[in-house]
Simulated scan of single mutants.
Amino acid sequence: MSIPKTMKALVAYSATEYKYEPDYPTPQCGPDDIIIKTEGCGVCAGDLKCQHGAAMFWGDETQPSWVEPPFIPGHEFVGIIAEIGENVTGYKIGERVAADQIVPCGECRFCKDGHYWMCQPHQIFGFFSGLNGGMAEYVRLPKKAVIHKVPLEMPLNDGLLIEPYACSKHCVDRAKIEVEDIVVISGAGTLGLGMVTYAKLRSPKKLIVLDMMDERLEKAKEFGADLVWNPSKVNVTEEIMKLTDGYGCDVYIEATGHPSSVVQGMQMIRKLGRFVEFSVFGEPTTLDWSIIGDRKELDVLGSHLSPYCYPFVIENIANKTLKTNGIVSKSFAIEDWESAFDAATGKYRDFKVAIKF
């Protein structure tokens, strides 16, 4: 396919200047590169936080800037191969692909021992001028990108869930769910629902989902939750204690990003339980840490990105084992990126919002 010299793109020039560019230079294909024609790109909470100027991206008096403008946002993308560099093997023009968010350096201690998702330079699509993301008509996938083939027949709305569901899978894997476990997932947004549909495959004794929005709880029930509770209507800690003879849940996965969910989880988890923190927080969380050590001896685990998860997720979205119905609830043209970002805040009760080309 013929690639034009310019393309439509959203470009971040600074924390305060995001601009739609109708004639931005199309990426050039080097000998080791793949250029894809973007079909669509999901809008992530990280994209929103970056656009709002969060210090974890742009830096402040306590931390340096991480991003390198100008850059094109977006890491939840899928597209069709439009051009292939002369040194590239194993891929053909016209194939459909997605890529891990991170492009590992291959040289640091984490890359060399197999933990590529914790790569020290931490170059992620959509935050660096040399690694532009999917909110543009074309994306360059460099040599070290971790690329995965996607069935052409997969509906685009399903393809757009590959990246978030891969993150969900890694989080649930960290929890090491067993068949006798009472599992609580706090938060039923896109990522929480990805956790629900995957956690159900682990066959826990009970899968319980918490959220403040009843329509999200309905979707969680559809996706496999045994019980759904709204903490604004039910004392969820009391209910867990009733269900477990006063011991508490075995696993608590925190996927809301709200401090109250952390405190709630520490209250309802049993001694020797497994607490997995997934979210990015907008404010500090205050907690009596003696709960973790002296009182309960908990395993407290983090979860970051989606290592080695894409192949499973692609296969099981394709075969309908992982449920996706209704998750991509709204899509926009790149020209309407401001409306897309506004909807992605969840204020209109959307799950996943996408930009499509």
Rank of each mutant, 00 (worst) to 15 (best):
E277H: 07
G85M: 07
I162V: 15
P31Y: 06
K49P: 00
E83Y: 02
M56N: 10
I34N: 07
C50Y: 04
E338T: 12
Y20A: 08
Y116H: 10
H304T: 09
P142F: 03
L287P: 02
H52K: 15
I240P: 05
R274W: 03
G282S: 14
G133L: 06
C108H: 03
S329M: 01
T6Y: 14
M268E: 13
Q101W: 06
A9L: 09
L131C: 02
M135V: 11
L156T: 09
I147D: 00
G59C: 10
A188L: 07
N132I: 07
C119N: 09
F341W: 12
A333T: 10
S261V: 03
W66Y: 15
H115N: 15
A99E: 02
G133Y: 11
F71N: 13
G189I: 06
E107K: 15
I292C: 13
K352R: 15
K242A: 12
I3D: 09
G79C: 13
G302E: 04
T286A: 14
I93P: 13
R295L: 13
T237H: 12
L161N: 00
I314Y: 01
L322W: 00
K242V: 04
Y24S: 08
F57K: 02
P27G: 11
M1C: 12
G134H: 03
V236W: 10
S329W: 00
G246Y: 08
I177R: 01
D294V: 08
F357S: 09
L141E: 06
I34E: 08
N235I: 05
D60W: 09
E315H: 08
A166E: 01
A166C: 01
N157K: 14
S261L: 04
M195G: 12
D350E: 15
L201D: 04
A344M: 06
G106Y: 09
S2V: 05
N235P: 00
E163L: 02
C111T: 06
Y20H: 06
K356N: 15
R174S: 15
I162E: 00
I314D: 00
A99M: 02
Y348V: 11
R270S: 07
K205E: 11
V103I: 13
D47R: 00
F275C: 03
R216F: 04
V251Y: 07
A9E: 11
C309M: 11
A340R: 05
T6I: 10
I162F: 00
V179Y: 10
G94R: 02
D226N: 13
M1T: 13
K205I: 04
V67G: 08
S2E: 12
W337M: 07
F110S: 13
G85R: 09
K206D: 10
V88C: 04
V43H: 10
Q264S: 14
A318G: 11
L210R: 05
G159V: 01
P73K: 05
G224H: 05
S303E: 08
K271P: 00
L272C: 07
K149T: 09
E137Q: 15
G159F: 02
Q28W: 01
L243F: 07
M195I: 07
V97N: 02
Q51F: 12
I327L: 13
S14M: 04
D23F: 11
A343M: 04
S260C: 04
S2F: 04
G30C: 05
A255W: 01
Q264M: 14
R202H: 10
F278G: 10
P164R: 03
G326L: 01
Q120H: 14
D350T: 11
E17C: 07
P204N: 08
V43S: 09
I240S: 05
E68Y: 06
